[in-house]
């Protein structure tokens, strides 16, 4: 393990208590080191505990064992350093599109309100919602809502962006558009990202590195350095190149083996 890790997940485990006094292990002790600026995708069978690992990084769940450090500081609960984008729509309906993005800056005391306004409008434009600044949330589509959520989180300027199946509820076309937009955003912002998905194509398309999780309780099955074989700048055309298909096959085989294992166990 290197000592220069930006995020260090160290022997972290999680077990939930059951009503009858027992515990169910959800995550077996595991360690992951993430470099600054790295785009890491967690994939695995649904319900495997990959989201739990990410939520522990975000401070929204407490590990049962082990510890997590972000930029040298121990994670002790949620904070502005760990920005989160959820699968379900988390934009506030009582605020407009721009109002929601402004909310990301509400608790920053380090900048003036004029600067806040400038930053909010910058991210509004960056996610392509310039014309929709004054729309209420219930009047815009699911894809646009997720763009609002992403812009709001980026405006808060977190050290790491945590994305929990953010495109899972979108139709195929909106999803593609947001994937491309996320890649562009990411090149512009150089943020460290942890992205959870069960869509293998999405994982390979977006990732510098894919961590494949086993079925519950989660263990790490493979840690695949995607950026070693695929170019950094990608488009949807990449879905057809052999290297892409190779990684995709590899990941799918690992996950399928888990799911057949599960079925056999039942």
């Amino acid at each position: 393990m290197s000592t220069s890790a930006f995020i260090r997940i160290n022997q972290v485990a999680k077990a939930f208590a059951t009503p009858d006094g027992g515990t169910i292990p959800v995550v077996d002790p595991l360690s992951i080191d993430i470099k600054e600026g790295e785009f890491v995708v967690f994939v695995g069978p649904s319900g495997c505990g990959k989201t739990t690992v990410m939520r522990m990084v975000g401070g929204l769940e407490t590990p049962s064992a082990g510890d997590i450090h972000l930029d040298g500081k121990r994670v002790e609960g949620p904070s502005r350093d760990k920005g989160m984008v959820f699968q379900s729509y988390s934009s506030f309906p009582w605020l407009t599109v721009l109002g929601n993005i402004r909310f990301g800056l509400r608790y920053r005391n380090d900048i003036s309100s004029a600067e806040k306004e400038r930053i909010a409008r910058h991210y509004l434009a960056l996610v392509g919602l310039g014309q929709f600044a004054d729309y209420t949330i219930n009047r815009i589509s699911g894809g646009m809502r997720q763009r609002v959520a992403i812009a709001r989180t980026l405006a808060a300027n977190p050290l790491v962006l945590l994305m929990d199946e953010p495109f899972g509820a979108l139709d195929a076309l909106s999803r593609e558009r947001l994937q491309i937009q996320l890649m562009e955003l990411r090149r512009a912002e150089r943020k460290t990202v942890i992205f959870v998905t069960h869509d293998v194509d999405e994982a390979v398309l977006l990732a510098d590195r894919i961590v494949v999780f086993s079925a519950r309780p989660a263990r790490i099955l493979a840690d695949i350095p995607v950026s070693a074989t695929l170019p950094e700048k990608r488009s949807l055309d990449i879905l057809d190149i052999p290297e892409f298909r190779q990684i995709r096959r590899e990941v799918l085989a690992l996950i399928r083996a888990q799911e057949t294992g599960l079925e056999a166990a039942e």
């Binding site: 975000g58 929204l60 949620p78 904070s79 502005r80 760990k82 920005g83 989160m84 959820f86 379900s88 729509y89 988390s90 506030f92 009582w94 909310f103 990301g104 509400r106 608790y107 920053r108 959520a149 709001r152 989180t153 808060a156 977190p158 945590l162």
Partner: peptide
Amino acid sequence: VPKEFIETGRTLGASDGALMKDVLLRAML
């Protein structure tokens, strides 16, 4: 009030008090 609203507020740096005033109260109004 959806858990996501509360967690969003937290990850944007809201204190307990701010969370109740700016998110919870507004969402439940």
